[in-house]
């Protein structure tokens, strides 16, 4: 069997393997939301019983749970997340469509920044292993991991927005200035992880035999690093991209709240606090699918980059 058809088969099998994950995501989300005490129409003002019954009937909340579940599954199958309970005139699809570009922009830029900065710093530290540069870079990286972004964000706002007045303290107008602080704070922890990861794998690669061979051939160090060491050293970072995305998404929930960005995360939190079932489920499923697909993509890229993985063998 050729490499290509093996790869295709592997891809298809992996794609099929995503289905149970997807099913589980929707099922768990659905039943957890419905187990939650209190309903979406509980407010300070007590609704008359008839009105509440009418509302429940309108949203099919009076049906047996299993029936609601299958109804929801049917809706999801045609990508309809239903109407939002709290934002009366909006469907969840509209809310998601309107807010995801903001989240995607911030998240994508943060990922890019984290990848470029993280690998650069990691390699710089690895090449100067056990020197002062290495120690201070790794110390900063540890700080990046340990300081939560909801601590960094207010401090940066205080310093750069309130005291210095260089950047806006929050809000979103698609301008660069309004992006800087959210992107940087979101990227920091991921950058730190990637830097540590790159350093570790780079050091390991630099100790391996093929690098010794390359050096013995008389190649200049810069060529050894770029041509031979870089790719294998980056591989663990590639496989980290899946979890990193999940981390960025949960981080974005906080970031969007702090910087009052009109993104998916802020809708999720408001929805969770207001028991807006359909909105919360819509956002969880949207993000879940995004994470699942990205993990899948990362796997493919990893397999494509890694010469040790071959699909023509039976495994």
């Amino acid at each position: 069997m050729t490499q290509d058809s093996g790869m295709l088969k592997h891809t298809l099998r992996r794609l099929l393997g995503l289905l149970p994950t997807l099913l589980m995501l929707i099922t768990v989300t659905f039943f957890m939301m419905r187990m939650a005490p209190g309903g979406p129409f509980d407010s300070e003002k007590l609704l008359p019983a008839e009105i509440e019954a009418n509302l429940n009937a309108k949203y099919h909340l009076d049906e047996p749970l299993l029936r609601q579940y299958f109804r929801y599954m049917g809706q999801i199958a045609v990508l309809d997340f239903g109407p939002s309970f709290q934002y009366k005139d909006w469907s969840v699809n509209e809310l998601i469509a309107q807010s995801y570009p903001v989240s995607l922009t911030v998240g994508g830029l943060a990922m890019l920044l984290a990848f470029v900065l993280g690998t650069t710093l990691g390699i710089a530290a690895a090449l100067r292993q056990n020197t002062r540069v290495d120690y201070s870079l790794m110390g900063i990286a540890m700080l990046g991991i340990s300081v939560p972004n909801f601590v960094i964000a207010p401090i940066l706002i205080l310093l750069l927005a309130v005291y210095a007045g260089w950047l806006p303290a929050g809000g979103w107008d698609w301008g660069i200035a309004s992006m800087v602080l959210p992107v940087v704070t979101l990227a920091l922890p991921v950058t730190a992880y990637i830097a540590r990861l790159t350093r570790g794998s780079m050091i390991e690669v630099l100790h391996s035999n093929f690098i010794r061979t390359a050096r013995a051939k008389g190649l200049p160090e810069s060529v050894v690093i770029r041509r031979h060491a870089l790719k294998p050293a980056i591989l663990p970072v590639i496989s980290f991209m899946g979890p990193a995305t999940a981390g960025l998404i949960s981080g974005s929930v906080v970031i969007e709240r702090i910087f009052s960005l009109p993104g998916l995360g802020s809708y999720f939190v408001t929805g969770a606090l207001n028991r807006d079932y359909t909105l919360v489920m819509g956002v969880v499923i949207f993000y879940g699918v995004l994470i699942i697909l990205l993990n899948f993509l990362v796997d493919l890229i990893y397999a494509w980059l890694n010469p040790k993985i071959r699909y023509d063998e039976k495994y």
């Binding site: 957890m32 949960s250 993000y287 994470i291």
Partner: peptide, 16 residues
């Protein structure tokens, strides 16, 4: 379970 957005589940659990 690993592929699920874990933090969102904690939030859902908190509501439940």
């Amino acid at each position: 379970i690993y592929a699920l957005p874990f933090l969102f589940f904690v939030i859902l659990l908190m509501m439940v």
